[in-house]
């Protein structure tokens, strides 16, 4: 197995065209899969030298986050200034451990496509788009269309995920997860909400949930129900009921389907409750 470290994005994309070649960013997923013999590439391209993939910038009301931005950075000041991106910062704070956060990148998190990906779930609630770059050009895909199946995404094998675009809007977002311990915990269930409340009513609300389906998913029915609503205890109860109906989690080593349903309902109720309290 060869490891190549190209100097430019163009070089990188050219090499990616060859068969059995995959990029490595932080390696926190890839190295695990190598060790477990789940993958056996001929060539690994180390993309961590590509400076242009490490930028965070704001233009036209979109926050552009380079694919190589680490979770440590996502948990820091650069994201903290945008209340609508709180969910991403909170997810980054709770992700892995300091060592993992220092290496793991947002691009790797998205491309891995785990339904338990903390960054993925948070960003999904932020109505973001991903930028996929190939030799033939750049395409932008809304994150809600990015995931196609268990650990499968819309990226082609000769493309790199170069950036994520998050619309900067009024409103706030939040992220919570339940793992089996307080650090280094894969989510048993996770939930992120972006919402904008005007005159006590939800002007806009997007809910994303993790670990309850093959991919991170949006809770569209619950969004629809909450749209235009005022947060009352009755509404919270009803939303918690709807979201439980909306999902079809499975039982695995980390938790039963039932437990996951309850966790999602509780996470939703708790975050709605917090929203109602912060509003007052």
């Amino acid at each position: 197995m060869d490891v190549i470290r190209p100097g430019s994005l163009q070089d990188c994309l050219r090499i990616l065209k060859t068969e059995h070649t995959i990029p490595i960013a932080g390696g926190t997923d890839l190295m695990v899969n190598l060790a477990l013999n789940k993958i056996s590439p001929d060539r690994i391209i180390d993309i961590t030298g590509l400076q242009e993939l490490k930028e965070i910038s704001l233009s036209d009301n979109f926050l552009k986050i380079g694919a190589l931005v680490t979770f440590s950075r996502l948990a820091g000041k650069e994201i903290a200034q945008y209340p609508c991106c709180n969910a991403l910062r909170e997810a980054a704070e709770k992700m892995g451990s300091p060592q993992i956060r220092n290496r793991a990148t947002i691009g790797g998190n998205l491309v891995t496509g785990s339904s338990a990906g903390d960054g993925s779930v948070a960003i999904l609630a932020l109505d973001a788009q991903v930028e996929l770059t190939g030799l033939d050009g750049i395409r932008k895909v809304p994150l809600s269309l990015f995931y196609s199946g268990y650990h499968q995404t819309a990226i082609h094998s000769d493309e790199l995920l170069t950036a994520v675009y998050i619309p900067i809007r009024p409103g706030t977002s939040s992220f919570q997860k339940v793992g089996k311990r307080n650090a280094l915990a894969i989510a048993v269930a996770s939930l992120a909400i972006y919402s904008y409340i005007r005159d006590s009513h939800f002007e806009q609300i997007y809910i994303a949930i993790g670990s309850v389906a093959p991919t991170p998913i949006r809770a569209v029915k619950t969004d629809l129900f909450l749209q235009g609503q005022k947060i009352t205890s009755g509404v919270i109860k009803e939303a918690a009921r709807i979201i439980q109906d909306e999902i079809a989690p499975i039982t695995d080593i980390r938790g039963t389907a039932d437990y996951r349903r309850k966790l999602i309902a509780n996470l939703l109720a708790d975050q709605l409750q917090q929203l109602s309290e912060s509003k007052n």
């Binding site: 451990s97 089996k180 311990r181 307080n182 650090a183 280094l184 080593i253 980390r254």
Partner: peptide, 9 residues
């Protein structure tokens, strides 16, 4: 999957 506590626990 063998869940040891971490420093955070």
């Amino acid at each position: 999957v063998y869940i040891l506590p971490t420093a955070e626990d």
